[in-house]
Design a protein around this nucleic acid. Structure first.
Lengths: 192, 192
DNA sequence: GTCTATAGGAGGATAGAC
DNA sequence: GTCTATCCTCCTATAGAC
């Protein structure tokens, strides 16, 4: 089955991207992990960049599905917190592909991918609406530009604090997520 | 002068690491940027990893010097804020080398570098003391483990939110620093 | 210590048979 | 669509003359 195989490929790419990052991941490794020849990989995806893009699209679809499943009547701020919690759980589970924010050839490949850009826009629009709602409801600080809030939430998906705390082995994954979620929304300062 | 040349090399490495990251930076580029032959580079530094390590040691020394220059009588929380502000300014200026948090061969090279590890320990100790002082003084939330605070502050040095906001071209560097500093210490939530 | 030239190898991508 | 075998570029590192 073609789709099943491509799904297996994407899953391998996802894991390897999370584990080693884009530059350190080799196509040979992906092929070995999937259990097929490298040339066969290239019949499914025309380049390494397309592999990475497919992985990104995959997690974005999962994110969209997660958003869909959130209770519609929940408060905007609670939906945002849920999404961030889910995102960080994904990263701690080694399922969040990490791309260099710098590599320009990869960036352009992503920006030329219709699936990726459409998904990103959709996600950003929906999160953006919740952010503005949460600000209007007095839950989020209205002085922070919504786009800055959005970026800050996105950034939790690749926060090195998560892996550092995990390496220290002092806290469970749940504790780490709670901790970082708290510093993200409540800040480091004492609340008076 | 040997030291001046090595300083020029480190400066180039610093800039290129900040711009492209470790994996995408090539030794040829460094040599071209410095204006010497690649073989000459290898007379100064035995490997690419050593180049990166030297760059990291260099910024760490700058950080230590910055800490030294802070007014001794200032409140701990203000010193911490100053350091983070300085760090983010460095990143926005393109002078903060960015290393992959994953590449294991580079990690081991760094951990075997006496200069790097000593500097990191010294920095962490001094920042850690300020963190505990700020918590005791009621400025920082005492419920957050000091090590989590330390990692959170370190993470500002490679926060993608900075570059995203910079790319948007809506805010000046100073505004970006102020914004991220605020979300870091005050959080995203509205303060009641 | 600087250069030119090159070794040595990894990795992305392809040819062509089945 | 899968394989084996190979191409070819790029990159780290070194040899050896000056």
């Amino acid at each position: 089955m073609l789709l099943a195989r491509e799904d297996a490929i994407i899953q391998s790419v996802n894991r390897l991207l999370a584990e080693k990052g884009y530059e350190s991941m080799t196509v040979d490794e992906v092929a070995a992990d999937v259990g097929i020849a490298k040339a066969s990989l290239y019949k499914h995806f025309p380049s390494k960049e397309d592999l990475a893009a497919a992985a990104m699209v995959s997690v974005m679809r999962r994110a969209q599905a997660f958003l869909d499943a959130l209770p519609a009547q929940a408060a905007a701020i609670e939906k945002l917190r849920s999404v961030v919690r889910w995102t960080m759980g994904l990263k701690l589970a080694g399922e969040m592909p990490s791309l260099p924010s710098q590599n320009s050839s990869l960036r352009t490949a992503l920006m030329e991918s219709r699936d990726y850009m459409d998904g990103l826009m959709d996600l950003s629009d929906r999160l953006g609406a919740w952010i503005e709602a949460a600000q209007a409801q007095g839950a989020l600080n209205p002085k922070i530009p919504p786009v800055a809030v959005l970026y800050t939430l996105y950034a939790r998906a690749c926060d090195p604090v998560l892996e550092f705390l995990k390496m220290g082995d002092l806290y469970s994954n749940d504790e780490i997520v709670t901790l970082v979620l708290s510093t993200c929304f409540d800040g480091l300062n004492a609340r008076s």
